[in-house]
Measured scan of single mutants.
Amino acid sequence: NRRVIAMPSVRKYAREKGVDIRLVQGTGKNGRVLKEDIDAWLAG
Rank of each mutant, 00 (worst) to 15 (best):
I38E: 00
V19H: 01
I5T: 08
K12V: 07
A40M: 12
L23K: 14
L34E: 10
A14W: 02
R22I: 07
K35P: 06
V19R: 00
D39P: 01
A6F: 02
E36D: 11
T27W: 03
V24K: 01
N1S: 15
K12W: 09
I21P: 03
L23V: 12
M7K: 15
K12G: 05
R3H: 13
R22A: 09
G18C: 10
G31T: 04
R15L: 13
G28C: 03
S9Q: 10
G26L: 02
Y13R: 06
D37T: 01
R2H: 15
V33G: 00
D20M: 05
G28K: 02
R11V: 09
K17Q: 13
A14H: 00
Y13E: 07
L23E: 11
G28D: 03
P8K: 15
P8V: 10
G18P: 00
Y13M: 04
R15C: 10
G26V: 02
D20V: 05
V24Y: 01
D37Q: 01
I21D: 01
A43F: 09
V10N: 03
I5P: 06
N1Q: 14
K29G: 08
I5L: 05
R32F: 08
L34G: 06
S9H: 12
R22Q: 10
Y13A: 07
G26F: 02
A6S: 06
V33M: 03
S9N: 12
G26W: 02
G18F: 08
Q25G: 09
Y13H: 11
L42Y: 06
A14N: 00
V19E: 01
G18I: 03
S9F: 07
K12S: 08
L23I: 11
K29C: 09
V19K: 00
K17W: 08
R3Y: 02
K35N: 07
T27V: 03
K35Y: 08
R11P: 04
S9K: 13
M7Q: 15
G28N: 03
T27K: 06
V33D: 00
E16T: 12
Q25S: 14
K35M: 12
K17R: 12
K17M: 14
E36I: 13
L34S: 10
G31Q: 08
Y13V: 07
S9G: 13
L34H: 07
D39Y: 03
A43I: 13
Y13N: 04
V10Q: 02
R2N: 14
Y13G: 04
A6Q: 04
D39A: 04
A40H: 12
R2F: 06
R32A: 14
K17T: 07
G31N: 09
E36N: 11
K29E: 11
W41N: 03
R22S: 10
R3L: 07
I21G: 01
V33I: 15
D20E: 07
G44N: 15
S9Y: 09
M7G: 15
A6I: 07
K35I: 11
A6W: 02
S9E: 13
R3Q: 14
R32S: 12
A6L: 03
N30H: 12
L42P: 03
R2P: 13
I38S: 00
E16P: 00
E16W: 10
W41T: 05
Y13P: 02
D39K: 05
T27I: 02
N30T: 07
A40R: 15
Q25H: 12
K12T: 08
G44P: 08
R11Q: 08
G31L: 05
A43N: 12
R2Q: 12
M7R: 15
R11C: 08
E36F: 09
V4H: 06
N30C: 09
K17G: 04
L42M: 10
N30Y: 13
W41A: 05
L34V: 11
V33T: 05
K17Y: 07
L42E: 05
R3S: 11
L42K: 06
V10H: 02
I21E: 02
R2T: 13
A14P: 02
R3N: 13
E36R: 15
G26Y: 02
V24P: 03
K29S: 10
I21V: 07
A40W: 10
L42C: 07
N30Q: 11
K29A: 12
D37W: 00
M7I: 12
G26D: 02
W41I: 07
A6Y: 02
L42Q: 06
V19S: 01
L23M: 12
K17L: 13
P8T: 09
P8M: 08
W41P: 01
G44V: 14
K17I: 08
R2V: 12
K17P: 00
V4N: 07
K17C: 07
I5V: 14
G28A: 05
W41K: 04
R11Y: 08
S9R: 10
I38T: 00
D39S: 04
D37C: 01
R32N: 08
I21R: 01
G31V: 02
I21M: 06
K17S: 09
V19D: 00
G26Q: 03
R2G: 11
G18N: 11
A40N: 14
A43L: 12
R32M: 14
N1C: 08
Y13T: 05
R15I: 13
V19A: 05
E16H: 10
I5D: 08
G31H: 08
W41E: 04
R22T: 12
D39G: 03
N30K: 12
L42N: 05
A43W: 09
G28F: 02
R3K: 15
I5K: 07
R3I: 14
G18M: 08
T27L: 04
R15Q: 13
P8N: 11
A40T: 13
E16M: 14
E36L: 11
G44S: 15
V33R: 02
G31I: 02
D39N: 09
L34D: 06
D39M: 05
A43S: 13
G31W: 04
M7T: 15
D39T: 05
Q25F: 12
T27N: 06
D39R: 04
G31E: 06
A14L: 01
G18D: 08
M7V: 12
S9V: 09
L42D: 04
L34P: 00
K35G: 04
V33K: 03
E36P: 09
N1Y: 01
G44A: 15
V4Q: 08
V19N: 00
T27E: 03
G31P: 02
L23Y: 13
Y13Q: 06
